Computed example of a mutant assay.
Amino acid sequence: MKDRLKVSLLVWNLSTNDGFIRASLLKAALIRLGYEVEILGFLFGNELYGAIRLESEVYAVEGINYPSFFKSVGKILKHIDGDIIYAIKPQPASFGVALLKKLYTRRAVILDIDDWELSWHGGDEWQYRPTLKQLAKDLFKKDGVLRLPNHPLYLKWMEALVNQANAVTVHTEFLHQRFGGTFVPNGKDTSLFDPAQYDAESSRSRYGLSQYRILMFPGAPRPYKGLEDVLIALDKINQPDLRLVIVGGSPYDDYDQQLQQKWGRWIIKLPKYPADVMPDLVAAAHIVVVPQRDTPETRAQFPLKLTDGMAMAKPILSTRVGDIPKILGDTGYLVEPACPEQIAEQIQLIFQNLESANQRGIKARERCVEHYSIEAMASVLKSVIARL
């Protein structure tokens, strides 16, 4: 008899953060509950995502296009030996593989949905209606789009199979309304992200930020994340010691270079750092900004940058989009999306009353510990697994 149950977490692409961060949070919560946990997935790139430590126990198989992808699926199926299979995202390379394993082992499958995958392709409006000639090209040409394992047609099929999972977990109201399931929040390791362990001035000095008042965005810039609105606000305020610090940059395209070209005088770009260094970086911030715009993508999201700031007791300036007001409660500063004028007002208000803003940050940490910690995740997961 095994001493403890094992959970296999399946991530569709270990070359990016598209699923791995959520998987690592779930892994931490499951370990708290006493389970043995493995992370498996495919590499649709040259190397593992930068936040994955080399010593991490991750099993990765080469991710390639159909039809060769079936061989990769065969390899990973042989290595999945968890008593429970936990698929991250309704992707063929995660949920599809999990359902195949369930078919001949009868092992329970949990599906975690942390994004609306089809929202990146137009959502419910997206349709695939090719001519016979186009269908043949898409299937049989070397660069045919239907050879891509994450083509939206396959995502649509996966969404139709959500009810085949034994349990579903989600982290926003939008996803709950669409797919049902149980809320499992994005937890934060609040013992690692603990402001008592860091000195803000020392952190600012370490990263060359001592002479500035820092607005920090600890993530990858994308147009829907609203950084342009913050930069327009800084133009309006026009105070020379204000800076927007962007940590990590965009792994997707040259969008951060576009921001730099237009608003370079307000931007300080820092490189990507390992996860255990992030608390020290966030400690350097005066304000953490999460200025999401209102789009189908953002309504489904739980921005991890919120809990970075909350756990580190920082004043958080964000927008009324999706679940953000619910996550922050009364512990943050909220403005309407895509409204630089309101952002400018709030930045000035926070710095004029910084002591009061920092007190609000302390309340944000208390809220994070209670509702959005790894322990909070573990509590909910315990009941999900008990029902299987």
Rank of each mutant, 00 (worst) to 15 (best):
T182H: 14
F183D: 12
P185S: 02
G187L: 01
G187D: 02
G187P: 03
K188L: 08
D189F: 06
T190E: 13
S191Q: 11
P195M: 08
A196Q: 15
Q197T: 07
Y198F: 13
A200D: 15
S202P: 04
S202W: 07
S205L: 14
R206C: 09
G208M: 00
S210D: 15
S210N: 13
R213Y: 00
R213Q: 05
I214G: 10
L215H: 02
G219D: 12
P221L: 00
R222C: 14
P223R: 00
Y224V: 09
L227S: 10
E228D: 10
E228N: 06
V230Q: 00
V230W: 05
I232E: 13
A233N: 09
A233F: 07
L234P: 14
L234H: 06
K236R: 11
K236W: 08
K236F: 12
N238L: 07
N238Q: 11
Q239H: 12
P240E: 11
P240Q: 09
D241M: 01
D241Q: 06
L242C: 02
L242A: 00
R243L: 00
L244Q: 00
V245T: 03
I246H: 04
I246T: 04
V247E: 02
V247C: 00
V247H: 02
G248L: 03
G248T: 01
G249F: 04
G249C: 05
G249W: 01
S250I: 06
P251Y: 03
D253V: 05
D254V: 05
D254G: 04
Q257C: 09
Q258E: 11
Q260W: 08
Q261T: 08
Q261R: 09
Q261G: 06
K262T: 06
K262C: 01
W263S: 06
G264L: 10
R265I: 02
W266F: 08
I267E: 05
K269F: 00
L270G: 11
K272R: 14
Y273R: 03
A275E: 12
A275F: 11
D276G: 03
V277K: 08
L281G: 15
L281I: 14
L281N: 12
V282T: 13
V282F: 14
A283K: 10
A284Y: 05
A284I: 07
A285F: 02
I287W: 05
V288W: 07
V290T: 12
P291E: 02
P291D: 02
P291W: 03
Q292T: 10
R293E: 11
R293G: 11
D294G: 08
T295Y: 13
E297K: 03
T298L: 12
Q301H: 09
P303H: 01
P303R: 00
L304T: 15
K305F: 15
K305H: 13
T307W: 05
T307P: 10
D308E: 13
G309I: 00
G309E: 03
M310A: 09
A311I: 04
A311W: 07
A313W: 13
K314N: 15
